[in-house]
Deep mutational scan, measured.
Amino acid sequence: EAHAAIDTFTKYLDIDEDFATVLVEEGFSTLEELAYVPMKELLEIEGLDEPTVEALRERAKNALATIAQ
């Protein structure tokens, strides 16, 4: 499951495998979680700032909209 989540994140969020791995290690496994989890939870991840989190959430929401079509 972790590998599938990493693949999904790299494909749809335009991030590298290392960043995707950090997200999975922090407990995220779906685009929905990244799109809708409280921003505070993402900001608790070391190295993430508000602009990065906002961009990540926007990419996740856009990916979900694209997949739904």
Rank of each mutant, 00 (worst) to 15 (best):
T52L: 12
H3F: 08
L34A: 00
I6N: 03
A5R: 08
E46L: 14
F28W: 08
I45K: 03
I67L: 10
E41N: 10
P51Q: 15
V22E: 05
L34V: 10
F9E: 01
R57T: 07
E32N: 07
E32V: 09
L42E: 02
G27T: 00
T30R: 09
E44C: 09
A68I: 10
A63Q: 04
A5F: 08
A2S: 12
N62W: 04
P51N: 11
A55S: 09
T30E: 04
A35H: 03
A35Y: 06
F19C: 08
V24F: 13
L64W: 02
E58L: 06
E41A: 09
I45L: 09
A60D: 00
E26A: 15
E33D: 13
A20E: 00
L42T: 03
E54T: 13
D18L: 11
E50S: 10
K40F: 12
G47I: 07
V24Q: 04
R59V: 05
D16Y: 06
T52R: 10
M39Y: 06
F9C: 04
K40P: 08
V37Y: 09
T8H: 12
S29V: 11
E50N: 07
L23N: 00
E44Y: 10
Y36C: 08
A35E: 03
P38V: 04
E46G: 11
Q69I: 10
K40R: 12
T66C: 09
D16A: 09
A4I: 12
L34K: 00
Y36M: 12
L48S: 03
V37W: 10
L48E: 01
K11C: 07
E26Q: 15
I67D: 06
A20V: 03
S29W: 13
E32L: 10
T10L: 13
T8E: 10
F28V: 05
A63I: 08
A20R: 01
P51I: 12
A60M: 03
E50D: 07
T66R: 10
T52F: 14
E17I: 15
K40I: 13
E46A: 13
V37E: 08
R59C: 06
K40C: 09
V53F: 08
T66H: 11
T66G: 10
K11S: 07
T52V: 09
T52M: 14
E26H: 15
R57F: 02
L42M: 09
T30N: 07
P38M: 03
L34S: 00
A5M: 11
A65K: 10
M39I: 15
T10R: 06
E26Y: 15
P51F: 14
G27R: 02
R59T: 06
E33P: 00
K11V: 05
Y12Q: 04
